[in-house]
């Protein structure tokens, strides 16, 4: 049973997916001897993606330097006389929100939320996915099929609804939201890594290790896991995109990161009632979510073309 439930799996369509457009940069033997950064540097979309990610990280880290406003202090001069939010002007480059807070400031601090959750949630999901996928793939038998049947079971849940149920049970805070997303997102990685480990553990060099009497732990850690690293890197990058989108959606629905902590999703959630008269309150945070998700997708896709041996044609 396959399922691409809002996941990067769909960017993994099949064994013969040629890179979009242009010559195949991973084609000739000479090309492959170049270092990974050198090969990535020849892909304009990957460079664009890396630049956007760097800009986002810089915005998150240097937010207090980049803006003179506080993220959660409503300003009297941030509202019109009738109490409506201000459109973008010289004082407030992206306008203000319904409480008169500077929107740029909230978006900069919101980048912290997106990046922390993106990295923490996706990191946890990858650890769980690798553990389950590698153990199930290596041992096979009863343990393997039990673990993979559990994975199938988790796949039958619609990701968003499961995350909503979990978020309703645990009072949502930044870290809880990250863990909820991890609990929903590990499944895809587990399946891919399971398939790969299964194929690896039947290869001759693993047989040879076994014949020489190497222990299970040694084979797993020294020989299996290192071969999984490229796939883990690719999934780690593509998965952050999914995570950023899921966090934004949960926060938009009111079950993610709770105000006043700014998150790009909850900025839109809070200001939704004003969006007809103040569309910038949806447009700017929305553009931020799209840019970050797209950047990780561009980089992840380029990494997949360069790193993932199963995807080369």
């Amino acid at each position: 049973m396959v399922n691409r439930n809002a996941s990067p799996a769909a960017t993994h369509p099949g064994p013969a997916d040629p890179p979009a457009g242009g010559a195949d940069p991973a084609g000739s033997g000479e090309e492959r001897r170049r270092s990974l950064p050198a090969r990535l540097a020849r892909r304009p979309l990957a460079i664009l993606g890396i630049l956007v990610i760097l800009a986002c990280v810089a915005g998150a880290v240097f937010a207090p330097v980049l803006t003179s406003y506080e993220p959660d202090v409503p300003l009297f001069e941030g509202l019109t006389l009738t109490g409506a939010p201000l459109p973008p002007d010289a004082d407030f480059p992206l306008g203000t929100d319904l409480l008169g807070r500077d929107l740029l400031t909230r978006i900069l601090y919101g980048a912290r939320t997106s990046l922390i959750i993106g990295i923490a949630a996706n990191g946890t999901a990858l650890v769980i996915g690798t553990l389950i996928g590698a153990v199930a793939g290596f041992f096979g038998g009863f343990i393997g099929s039990a673990l993979m049947r559990f994975t199938d079971l988790m796949m039958a849940f619609p990701a968003l609804l499961l995350a909503i149920c979990l978020a309703a049970i645990f009072q949502p805070s930044l870290w809880i939201v990250a863990m909820v997303i991890a609990l929903v997102n590990w499944v895809q990685a587990a399946r891919v890594l399971y398939t790969e480990t299964r194929a690896l553990s039947q290869r001759e060099f693993i047989e040879a290790e076994r014949a020489m009497g190497a222990g299970t732990a040694r084979i797993l850690l020294r020989h299996i896991v290192p071969h999984l690293v490229p796939t883990i890197i690719v999934w780690g990058t593509l998965g952050i995109s999914t995570t950023v989108l899921l966090e934004a959606t949960l926060s938009y629905l009111g079950v993610g990161v709770q105000p006043p902590t700014p998150s790009w999703g909850n900025i839109i959630f809070e200001n939704q009632t004003y969006f007809q008269s103040a569309p910038w309150l949806v447009f700017f945070p929305g553009a931020a979510i799209l840019a970050l998700a797209l950047a990780f997708n561009f980089v992840g896709d380029a990494l997949r073309d360069e790193l993932d041996p199963t995807q080369r044609d």
């Binding site: 995109s241 959606t249 938009y252 999703g265 007809q276 799209l290």
Partner: peptide
């Protein structure tokens, strides 16, 4: 197509509405 899969659905919906 990359942009389409990276765009949050609620933002697409609100923009189309606007």
């Amino acid at each position: 197509s990359f942009t389409a899969v990276s765009a949050p659905q609620f933002v697409v919906g609100l923009l189309l509405l606007y």
